[in-house]
């Protein structure tokens, strides 16, 4: 045993302030990590504000001496996205045209199916739910070729209808998971009370269940908006050359460019494409997290 007393005899009142090295290190770590995560964004923005001369001579870190929006303008109006050189404008419009029905339809379908499964418990419902959930894990490549054939046989290939159908098909599992889990957390008594009050299938959905679904609808819409906007594979195959979404056109700008590479224009185009999901993300942070967390919870 050491002779040092375990407790200082004169200790009294608040603990003396001392420099907390641990806290300092903690914040340094966090700031370093944040810098690493933000670095590509910074490079993207600075590059897009430079002219090609500055890109070639300066460092990719550097803030441009004369920031200009020239690159943004040509990314939007004149960059070559394949055979035409009209910038990303068209792709943006295409993405919007794809987005609206590809969000509305799966969300509505997921809500109604989830409601039917959770409250009406029809025969075979569990089988349907389980089957669709497995679909969540299967690589898309297995479905794609037959789906091209099936959709083209009903005139839904190479047009907006086709891409919307594909988004609906592949969003069904996650939408159903979201809504079913949410509805399963609502009290069953509520549904029973509505049955006794004489509500039918659609009345109970419209008057009782839907008004309570606002939070999960927000989550589902955010998830689907970012998912559809960021899609590349389906847009490439199913949308048809006149309706290519922004992501596909962006990839064309960069990876099919011939001759001198205009990195500043490429980065401007990249930011423009990322803008919609980023805005959604920044304004909905908490809901966004709920969406990905809900996707992670098994049914």
């Amino acid at each position: 045993m050491s002779s040092r007393p375990l407790f200082p005899a004169h200790a009294e009142g608040p603990r003396p302030a001392r420099l907390n090295l641990g806290r300092l290190a903690l914040y340094l770590c966090l700031i370093a990590a944040a810098a690493a995560f933000l670095f590509p964004l910074w490079v993207m923005v600075t590059t897009s504000l430079k002219d090609m001369e500055a890109v070639r001579s300066g460092s990719i870190f550097g803030w441009p001496a004369q920031p200009s929006l020239e690159a943004w303008k040509s990314a939007w109006t004149s960059a070559c996205t394949g055979l035409t050189c009209e910038g990303l404008r068209g792709g943006f419009v295409n993405s919007l045209l794809i987005l609206v029905p590809s969000v509305a339809l799966p969300v509505a379908l997921g809500a109604v199916t989830g409601y039917a499964l959770s409250f009406w418990r029809p025969r075979g419902g569990k089988l349907l739910f389980g089957g669709l959930l497995i679909g969540l894990f299967i690589p898309y490549q297995v479905f794609i070729y037959p789906l091209v054939r099936i959709l083209s046989s009903v005139g839904l290939y190479g047009n907006i209808g086709g891409i919307v159908a594909v988004h609906t098909i592949f969003a069904m599992p996650i939408m159903l998971l979201l809504f079913r889990n949410y509805y399963a957390s609502l009290p069953m008594d509520l549904f029973k009370a509505a049955r006794i009050d004489g509500g039918g299938f659609w009345t109970i959905f419209r008057r009782v269940v839907l008004p309570m679904s606002a939070p999960i609808i927000v989550v589902a819409v955010i998830l689907q908006v970012t998912g559809v906007w960021n899609d590349f594979l389906f847009g490439l195959i199913f949308a048809g050359s006149d309706n290519l979404p922004m992501t596909v056109q962006l990839n064309n700008i960069v990876n099919s460019a011939r001759g001198a590479q205009e990195y500043n224009v490429q980065m401007a185009a990249t930011i423009l494409t990322a803008l919609v999901p980023l805005i959604v993300y920044f304004f909905s942070g908490r809901w966004f997290v709920r969406g990905i967390a809900a996707g992670a919870v098994k049914g």
């Binding site: 966090l30 990590a33 944040a34 995560f37 933000l38 670095f39 590509p40 964004l41 490079v43 993207m44 590059t47 990719i60 970012t226 906007w229 960021n230 899609d231 590349f232 992501t247 962006l250 990839n251 960069v254 990195y263 490429q266 980065m267 990249t270 494409t273 990322a274 999901p277 980023l278 959604v280 993300y281 920044f282 942070g285 966004f288 997290v289 990905i292």
Partner: peptide, 23 residues
């Protein structure tokens, strides 16, 4: 911090690929 660490997950893989290709 949370917003910063999660924002890359909000963008398309195409965007990620192109940015890192350039960096």
């Amino acid at each position: 911090f949370r917003t910063i660490f999660l924002y890359p997950y909000a963008v398309s893989f195409v965007v990620t690929g192109l940015v890192w290709q350039w960096v």
